[in-house]
Write a protein that binds this DNA or RNA. Structure first.
Lengths: 199, 199
DNA sequence: GCCGTTTTGAAGTGACCGTTTCAGAATGGG
DNA sequence: CCCATTCTGAAACGGTCACTTCAAAACGGC
């Protein structure tokens, strides 16, 4: 009944994601997005309303499409020990952060710029995701503890540690670290999650 | 013999540092700097030549003035073991990253924006510092190994791990983590640096 | 084959970006 | 007291920013 879009929405979001991922929100202009998607600014604003909303959609797509397979480790049932769980999670994400054919690092950690005190809208988007992931991790560690696993620290502390470690791995990937090095970093971090008696 | 500057250079650099530190290079405009320093843009360009050069000077000042006291741990003589050394270093920096009266996080990790592939000039500045710190750490770990300390991984790998951890701690600080939490994260990371026999 | 609806490209909005220009103000030496 | 020298504020540079306006274009229903 109306004129169809020249570029499907999913494809537009995916192309926007790549730009935000490798350049960050601030350094990605509407001009860049327009060129990469292949439509004019008016089409972008007609479809998404604002640059911020497009960023939100792009990050959501990253979570669903790119990160989800590895992230399922956090919520899925398994009888892995603490170290094995963390090792598998960190190695999986380190691998994702250094996959050829896509930007280096993690879109969530790199997408919103560095960011300190003042809350850019883009930072609020990624901050909320980090908080949610931290909560999921803490829940998982609580469950592992209930199952008898000895943890090196309280669940929430371990979750904070892992968020920090992931952020670090993402930045190392962007700075040119090899996948092999990131795997060793993942193993080191995983090892430190076990309690003293299971070291 | 000539008109004196209305604001001493060190003071101008320090005020610029605070802005770059809390907002990052990209989000800090010449207009911001002009207002914070208290002189017009022409004076800034007369004194420093470009925004990038002022950033370079600001980061250099951060290293010399703010980070140096803690960083001396890396180069100074001491008979600390691996875990104690790393623990002291990470706790010292975690404390620096959450010091009241100054921006959160580390100016080196937060100052140049997120940054992926394309090398902004500002990113090159901080990247070089990270590399230098990594080399210093690796040298220190080699010395510790020569002294008989058992390491959890080769010196260079441990250095990469620490750079990543510091980056993570800095971002956690910016995202609102408490100093107490960062201390626990520092302890976890430190623990994982010791070899299996010294766990 | 026209109509209502939605998308499209082209052009334009004011605002801000980093940087430069320039005339005048502030110095210490002669 | 004037001079050479340096720094100063005010204004302006072209360029890019996020975003909007608008008329023409592309559809399905009738």
């Amino acid at each position: 009944m109306a004129r169809p879009r020249s570029v499907p929405e999913d494809e537009a979001v995916e192309r926007a994601l790549v730009l935000f991922w490798e350049q960050g929100f601030d350094r990605t202009s509407i001009s860049d997005l327009s060129a990469a998607i292949g439509v004019g600014p008016s089409s972008i604003y007609n479809a998404f309303g604002s640059k911020e909303e497009l960023f939100r959609r792009a990050i959501a797509r990253y979570v669903e499409t790119h990160a989800a397979p590895t992230m399922e480790l956090v919520s899925e049932e398994s009888d892995l020990g603490v170290v094995e769980f963390v090792r598998k999670l960190l190695r999986g994400l380190a691998s994702l952060y250094t996959t050829e054919g896509q930007p280096l690092g993690c879109a969530i950690f790199q997408g919103a710029g560095a960011g300190g005190s003042d809350e850019t809208s883009a930072q609020a988007v990624t901050l909320e995701l980090k908080q949610r992931l931290q909560d999921s991790l803490a829940r998982r560690f609580r469950e592992l503890a209930r199952r008898g696993e000895v943890l090196a620290a309280p669940p929430r502390t371990l979750a904070v540690f892992l968020i920090g470690t992931l952020c670090g791995i993402s930045q190392l990937a962007c700075d040119g670290a090899s996948r092999a090095d990131l795997m060793k970093v993942a193993d080191l971090a995983a090892k430190s999650c076990a309690g003293p008696s299971a070291g």
